[in-house]
Amino acid sequence: MAARAYLCMVKVSARTVLTYRANFVLGLFAVFFQLLAMLYVWRLLLESGKDFGGYTWPQMKAYLLVAFVTSSLVSAYGDFRMAARIRDGLVSLDLVKPVTYQTARFAETVGRAALELAVTFAVAGSIALVTGGIPVPDLPQLLLFAVSIAAVVPLKFLVVYLSTLLCFWTQNYMGVAWARTSLVALLSGSLIPLVLLPSWLQTTAMLLPFASLTATPAAIYLGQATGGEALGLLLTQAGWVTVLWVAGRLVWRFAVRQLTVHGG
């Protein structure tokens, strides 16, 4: 019964994205141009002949394209909407619905993510073709990669969700969103591969959930992690999803007590 409601929310949010497709596409454009810039910079750097973590140009292309997909996921507007509803007190209307708030927001995220995945994979694939191809792993490795990408959806949702819940205390989301975006870009490896970071920062990233967001799918795609090591990475992703899911429920319980909806 409730499952049907969440399923319906998945569909509805996908439809909402389609209603605002211009907004959706423009949002992707921003990440897309960033990707182009990165591709050019890295080609120049690698042509200089210096060694950057042992990456060849095709491998670096593959890395950047994977990073493009993972950083485009769960980015479209859902968090801003949630933040605005918390700030304006509209969240009180969500509270009189017979659904779990966190699961409902996750359902909406899944709906959007389905479209985000379709579009970003199409874009990444076209870029790979136009720029002369990228290495493609064998089928078992490709399946592991698919699982790791799928795990990014709940994981990134939870990182975004937890930071958005801060709105119950801060009443302002911009600062929170910027801080989170920078932190995720650096520590997930979506800005530059983690191997190129100073070792203490690498360790920090590996100890936190962030590395699971980009470094893990990229390592699996590039075959840097295979077999047992790859499975270990997937388990780490699953572990973080579990931990953060529970954390989300706990933080929510405190956050909702902060709710002060004004009114006569």
């Binding site: 019964m1 409730a2 049907r4 409601a5 399923l7 319906c8 929310m9 509805v12 017979p98 659904v99």
Partner: peptide, 9 residues
């Protein structure tokens, strides 16, 4: 309304 229908079963 359809969404609410599903929510309330």
């Amino acid at each position: 309304l359809a969404l609410l229908r599903d929510m309330y079963g």
